[in-house]
Amino acid sequence: MSETTSRVLQLLGLLQSRRVWTSDELAERLVVTTRSVRRDVERLRDLGYPVHASKGHGGGYQLGAGAALPPLLLDPDEAVAMAVCLRLAAGGTIAGVGESALRALSKLDQVMPSRLRSQVAAVHDSTVSLASSSDTPVAPDVLMTLARACRDHEHVTADYVDIRGNATHRRLEPYQLVTTGRRWYLLAYDRDKSDWRSLRLDRMADVRAAGSTFTPREAPDAATYVQRAISSSPYPYVARVRFHAPQSVVAQHFSPASVSIEPDGPDACVVTTGADDPERMVFYFATVGCDFEVLEPEDVVRAVETVSVRLQRSVSR
Rank of each mutant, 00 (worst) to 15 (best):
G96D: 08
A81I: 01
R151T: 11
A90P: 04
S100E: 09
M112F: 09
P137D: 14
L86P: 05
A81K: 05
V123S: 04
A81E: 11
M112E: 02
L146H: 02
A149L: 01
G96C: 04
S100I: 02
G92W: 14
A83T: 00
R115C: 03
S134W: 01
L143T: 12
L130F: 13
L143P: 13
R87V: 01
R115V: 03
V142W: 08
A121W: 02
T93F: 01
S126M: 02
L116Y: 14
A101T: 11
P137G: 05
V97S: 14
S100W: 06
S134H: 07
T136G: 03
C85R: 15
S133W: 11
A90R: 15
D135I: 05
P113N: 11
S126P: 00
D109H: 14
R151C: 06
L130S: 04
R87T: 06
A101Y: 11
Q119Y: 12
P137W: 15
S114E: 01
L116E: 15
D152M: 03
V123E: 07
D141P: 03
C85D: 13
M112S: 01
E154P: 03
L105C: 03
A89R: 03
L116T: 01
L105F: 11
T93Q: 10
D141F: 10
A149Q: 04
D109Q: 14
S118H: 11
A131G: 11
L102F: 05
D141S: 09
G91I: 13
K107L: 12
E99R: 12
A90K: 12
V84K: 08
P113A: 05
P140R: 08
V138Q: 13
S129I: 12
A89Q: 08
L105S: 10
D125G: 09
A122N: 14
L88A: 15
L146G: 03
I94A: 04
G92E: 11
M112V: 03
M82F: 06
D109G: 04
V142M: 08
H124M: 01
L116D: 13
D125A: 09
L130K: 04
V97I: 15
L108T: 13
A81C: 00
T145D: 03
S134Q: 14
S106A: 14
V123F: 09
M112Y: 08
C150Q: 07
R87S: 10
A139V: 01
A131M: 09
R115P: 02
G91M: 07
Q119P: 01
A122V: 05
A81T: 10
R87G: 00
A104C: 14
S133Q: 13
H124L: 04
A122Y: 02
L88D: 09
E154Q: 10
S132A: 14
Q110G: 04
L102N: 04
L108K: 13
D125E: 13
V111M: 11
T136L: 07
R117F: 00
G96T: 02
